[in-house]
Design a protein around this nucleic acid. Structure first.
Lengths: 189, 189
DNA sequence: CTGCTATGTTAGTGCCGTTCACATCGAACG
DNA sequence: CGTTCGATGTGAACGGCACTAACATAGCAG
């Protein structure tokens, strides 16, 4: 990172979030280290504690930005199949970030962006139900939740089966299309 | 654990695996510590390295036993809805173990028990397709994979939404039934 | 009985997250 | 314009972690 001439960094908080994203992209969630983030930002290992209570809170801020990015990408997808492709593609392209976003942390706070992402999916499901593209076995809410669950499972398992085990190693868009087609009879043209 | 009178433990390897399971059950995957496992087994922190190359290899052995247990439970389930219930229930009752089994570890070895579990699901899907219980949008293999993906996503999201967010906090069997019904129109009685 | 090998211990290394006392600085106020 | 005060940074610690190297013990095979 750029040299710092002043005693105070000025924009350390965002620099830490950005650095954390970098590390997650390079080395994955398991290798993440708060000390390493501080080193990259050119500050002491104690500095981050002026902006975050602990390591988890920094990762939470990172996750929040991840949710916002994902919600935005989902918004620009048209149709259920495309939505699914975007979701799995996001996990594929940002595995460290994705794991950080959805790692088990009981009691985690609700994310506004996460909710927005779900609303986008919900709208797509409602439209597909009304157009008859998919069957109406349940309410839009339940159906959307069920589809989210499916896409999430697909993303998670895709990330950890790099050797194409169970055929889960293919291209994200293809995987999403095949899976939605198998469950819903959804055509993905 | 029981006091040890001899210099050599005798069955340390299994004691370590069992102790690791205990810790996972009590404190979860994130809190797991190899030193703590050694302490519980009443040996030095270096002893585990006579039986496992590193922490990950011990967790791998734990995961393998987890796969075997899960495969066994799935085998004794009748019908798709029951199978789904068993899967999500297992995650619910053994969150630490479940996370350990499916944590991201690129290049992880194929598990025989994991494969067996999938075969069980595959048989159930074939039967359901032949009886007309579910539609035949795709091959049994693809359909089984898609259902596994769904159940897995359900389990994962259930584990991390303890406050019933998105309605994912309910009883495992109920969640599985509702989800399969929404996607497939599957009746669960 | 002797010695080999498997399995244990002790004592260390370096990294981690976190805290505490102290340093610096910018902005708010007299 | 000078002072002070809160926000933000540093350096030096603490205990815990995964892991390693050198050494100790013991069970087993000759």
């Amino acid at each position: 990172m750029a040299e710092r001439r002043t005693y105070h960094h000025g924009t350390l908080r965002q620099a830490l979030v950005d650095g954390a994203k970098e590390i997650l992209a390079e080395s994955g969630h398991e290798q993440f280290s708060l000390n390493e983030v501080a080193r990259r930002a050119g500050v002491s290992t104690a500095a981050p504690y002026r902006h975050f209570r602990n390591r988890d809170e920094l990762l939470g801020a990172v996750a929040e930005e991840g949710y916002a990015t994902l919600a935005d990408k989902l918004e620009n997808a048209d149709g259920l199949a495309a939505l699914g492709g975007v979701y799995v593609r996001f996990a594929h392209d940002n595995p460290g970030l994705f794991v950080t976003m959805f790692r088990s942390r009981p009691g985690g706070t609700e994310s506004a962006a996460g909710r927005a992402a779900f609303e986008t999916l919900l709208r797509a499901v409602s439209a597909a139900q009304h157009s008859g593209e998919i069957a109406t076995h349940a309410s839009p809410e339940i159906t959307a939740r069920s589809l989210w669950v499916t896409l999430h499972g697909l993303a998670v398992l895709h990330l950890q089966q790099p050797h194409d085990r169970y055929g889960l190693g293919g291209e994200p868009e293809q995987l999403a299309a095949t899976t939605l087609s198998a469950l819903l009879g959804l055509k993905s043209d």
